[in-house]
Design a binder for these strands. Structure first.
Lengths: 238, 238
DNA sequence: ACTTCTATATATAAAAT
DNA sequence: TATTTTATATATAGAAG
């Protein structure tokens, strides 16, 4: 878990496996002892080590045995109720990992498209960009547009609420935000136009999609990889 | 172990103890599973939780029982040989903690004295400084002096090894490092002088030390708090 | 109480010794 | 191989929702 992320699998190299075993055994014992102290519970760990005929036990064999015996005397139903078996444990961890994967994929996607937009704003052509990237790009621009619009509305409201004394500055500001919004809209329209040209150049796209459910014509919603259920091009085509 | 270092003791607050229990139990189970996977060993953890009549077991009760039974069938001598009992474990950890404490004390001491030296160089008087601080301060200055001397020797050597073509720059550099060393020496002498004046003002010091083993006269070695066995004032009084 | 978030503390893999 | 050091990964305490 350091210097490099190690895969959760049997370590083939003998030397490093032994080193890891020693370290982790020590760490585990410490953890058991801490849990025991901090929470005032009886706990034990039993490790049936490699090349050893007897396991290492903490805090002692007798304690461990006593604890297990208490458990054994319970009816089986009670046992299984609280017992965390390996399958349930692994299933639970797998679920968590899947969720993390999805989260990371979404984040990655977001940054990819943001970078793409930056390149676009820096004048790089969109000819070689894939359909997926383009549609996500449009979503991102749309999203940013909304933020800009909301922001301009806020600024307008604040300006209107200001005192009459500031009438001149107010009108100047309204001009300014209006201009800002107009420019952004123009930029958006340019990108969308570029995208449509690009689509038209990509013959395979037409081969895959049948004419009557062409994305740009239906107005339906589409789920993008990085934002669940986000309306596609919502508000861009009135 | 985060946001704040918790004391290794029973957590009195019910709510946080339960929260800690849940988190740490999960973490412990994960560690056991990882050790098992990475090193290919049988291991289990048994936690007899609070308010629960049966312990939680990983990977399963049967495995744990089997492992313990293997252990139980061994002769007692064999058992105790490999068994890590609570006492040995605690003793081992205590030793480590003592070592860490010493290390930290040394570090703290070093910084304290460095700060003292900084204040001194900024012109603050040494009148109210204790004997211990002063002796450590002298050690630190001595140590720094050595470093400066070594560094100047290195620079001189490099300069001498340089080509004849750079004769002028070389001599200039030698003048420079000479000056540097002279200044440092002067500063040291001033500090030592200040220290001796200070000592003379502190009557209690004379009361404690008998005349014939006065520190400044014996030339013997003295162990400083932050460097074991370091010669005191070595090289400062030729 | 139950998550999720985030700053810290701790564990530990690999390198240095 | 054992120990120490260092850079990272992981665990987790406390806050926030």
């Amino acid at each position: 878990m350091a210097r490099k992320k190690v895969k959760l699998a049997w370590i083939t190299n003998d030397s490093s496996r032994r080193a890891t075993y020693k370290k982790r055994k020590k760490g585990l014992m410490k953890k058991v002892s801490e849990l025991s102290t901090l929470c005032g519970v009886n706990a034990c760990a039993v490790i049936y080590g490699p090349n050893e005929r007897q396991p290492e036990v903490w805090p002692s064999f007798c304690d461990a045995q006593h604890i297990l015996m208490q458990f054994k005397t319970l009816p089986e139903m009670e046992q299984s109720k609280k017992m965390m078996n390996q399958e349930a444990f692994l299933r639970q961890r797998m679920q968590k990992l899947k969720e993390q994967l999805t989260k990371h994929q979404k984040e990655n996607r977001h940054w990819e498209v943001t970078m793409l937009m930056s390149q676009c704003l820096l004048g790089k052509g969109l000819e070689e960009v894939s359909i997926n990237d383009l549609s996500d790009l449009v979503w991102l621009i749309d999203s940013n547009m909304k933020m800009i619009h909301e922001r301009t509305e806020t600024i307008k409201a604040e300006a209107l609420a200001a005192s009459k004394q500031q009438a001149k500055e107010e009108s100047m500001m309204k001009m300014k935000v209006g201009e800002e919004e107009r420019r952004a809209t123009t930029a958006l329209e340019e990108v969308v136009a570029m995208e449509m040209e690009s689509l038209q150049r990509q013959q395979w796209f037409m081969d895959v999609m049948s004419p009557n459910d062409h994305i740009l014509c239906t107005g339906e919603e589409m789920t993008l990889p990085f934002v669940d259920g986000s309306p596609w091009l919502d508000g861009c085509y009135p």
